[in-house]
């Protein structure tokens, strides 16, 4: 087992190296619009150097004078020691900005994830046990609709209904205008209030796939021989479903859920941007639009690490949870 994990980790590191290189090369090949705009600004000032001179100086300053490969190794060397440089767009160290924003995204993602599990798994089981019933069709269609719903459209609908028509929530942002005058508890409630719509969006959008996954796996288990045996023994239907079948459905579910845990740190780029929640997704969206290479590099590599970690966790969990799986 330890050998397997070690091997997987090593392979992941190699993959990560190439992913980071591709991302770095991509970022470097893009027109460095950020630097150009700064150089243009600076050269506009009276008695200033020319645009070309500023560009040259800024390129040295921002480490863009080296070739892509040399630059990449310089970047990776610094990254290994935990130095990701300063964000160009936010003019603070990348890690500081990351630390300021990632926890908000995590809290939001975690609540949404929890609600998703609590809603999707029972509904998936109901749909599977009552296959071809009206409940099954309804749940299946709702799940598919959730998958098919474009985030931005759903978020806009929610805003129209709850923010504009009912006036329960603000349209944008994390805090109200009178945030500073509130008590500590009031501030917490205010933030919570602003997070309701984004979380609802996240839950509805991502619920569908888990629901369908649960249903498919539950159906598979319900058709297994041991369920027939359990029924033949004369066990009550409830006992068959929740004691025998559901436990076996848990195996794939746990691996999937475990695998998506790292993703909670990734933030919800679209949702956060739509609702103006200053989480990691929102912050990196604006950094990426502005062509902020240090921040974008960090965020993209961070996302890749999360993906690799998720795959690793789900593979390991699969072996841990299911005793039938043996890993050499």
């Amino acid at each position: 087992m330890r050998k397997y994990v070690l091997k997987r980790v090593l392979v992941s590191v190699v993959i990560l190296f190439f992913v980071a290189f591709i991302i770095y090369a991509l970022m470097r090949c893009l027109p460095t619009s950020y630097i150009e705009s700064i150089a243009r600004q600076k050269s506009m000032q009276p008695n200033s150097k020319s645009f070309e001179e500023w560009m040259a100086q800024l390129k040295v300053m921002y480490n863009l004078d080296k070739g892509i490969i040399v630059g990449f190794f310089a970047w990776i060397g610094q990254a290994l020691t935990g130095q990701f440089g300063d964000s160009w767009f936010y003019t603070v160290p990348v890690l500081q900005k990351f630390n300021d924003t990632v926890w908000l995204s995590f809290v939001m993602g975690f609540i949404a994830f929890f609600l998703e599990i609590v809603i999707a798994i029972p509904l998936g089981i109901i749909a599977a046990t009552k296959q071809y019933s009206r409940a099954d069709y309804t749940i299946s269609i709702v799940a598919l609709a959730g998958i098919s719903l474009p985030t931005f459209f759903f978020a806009s609908l929610l805003k129209l209904l709850f923010s504009v028509k009912l006036g329960w929530f603000d349209l944008y942002g994390l805090i109200s205008r009178d945030y500073d005058t509130m008590s500590v508890f009031g501030q917490l409630m205010d933030k919570g209030n602003h997070l309701v719509l984004p979380i609802v969006t996240l839950v509805v959008i991502s619920m569908g796939s888990l629901m369908r996954y649960t249903r498919t796996n539950m159906l598979e288990v319900l058709n297994a021989d041991f369920v027939r045996t359990a029924r033949a023994k004369g066990l009550s239907e409830k006992s068959v479903i929740y004691h025998h079948a559901f436990r076996n459905t848990l195996i794939p579910l746990v691996t999937v859920i475990g695998g998506s845990l790292p993703g909670l740190f990734a933030g919800a780029l679209i949702t956060e941007t739509l609702f103006g929640i200053p989480g990691i997704g929102f912050v990196s969206y604006h950094a990426m639009i502005a062509g902020d290479i240090p921040f974008s590099m960090f965020y993209l590599v961070f996302m890749s690490i999360l993906t690799l970690l998720g795959n690793l966790i789900s593979d390991i969990l699969y072996a841990v949870v299911d005793p039938r799986v043996r890993i050499a």
Partner: peptide, 24 residues
Amino acid sequence: RMVDIFYCLPSMPIIIILGAAMDA
């Protein structure tokens, strides 16, 4: 391994970056 790498690339951010570059 190529498949693994492409699986791992965060596609949405990359498309956003490329889109912004095309804007520029």
